[in-house]
Amino acid sequence: MNIFRLAGDVCHLVAIIILLLKIWRSRSCAGISGKSQVLFAIVFTTRYLDLFTVFISPYNTIMKVVFLALSYATVYLIYMRFRNTFNSENDSFRLEFLLVPVIGLSFLENYAFTPLEILWTFSIFLESVAIMPQLFMITKTGEAESITTHYLFFLGLYRALYIANWVWRYHTEGFFDQIAVVSGVVQTIFYIDFFYLYVTKVLRGRGKMTLP
């Protein structure tokens, strides 16, 4: 464990909590892509199956349980509790365009052709595109509430810190996880465009981020 990974995990946790609190306190999920949240719940479910088979550390186990619980709570709030505030017509990204290539690739490119490895690889590839429906919704509606942009900012920061973590681990312990790194870089690239908008729009005190 290094400071980059710890900071990354904390940013990830902060992002998930920001979104959950926003939905809970505003009692609305307007502007939130339910599809992205479903994809994140699938990412955690398929990645943390080793929760019951491999014990790595108390931190690892607790964070996995927390991420699973919070992501399912978010999906529950969107599709059950506040479903009447969910504008599904704006959340129109075709998930099959993401799931089919990701499933195919996880069968082609993996470390071992075993169910656990393929599911882990699937979760890595899926995480890199899971934010697409949310970014698509923002480009479609042309705006995002500032809380949603803070959520995306912390999510992007978590990915950027994970890249720093991989650089650090490569130089200090020669650790290199090719699938995770390639997929993580692709995922972070999606956020770069958003980071630019975030800094030029939201941080300039406009409150709402409106796309040009």
Partner: peptide
Amino acid sequence: GLKAEEKDEL
């Protein structure tokens, strides 16, 4: 390739 126990990242 990576062994399962090395997968300690979230």
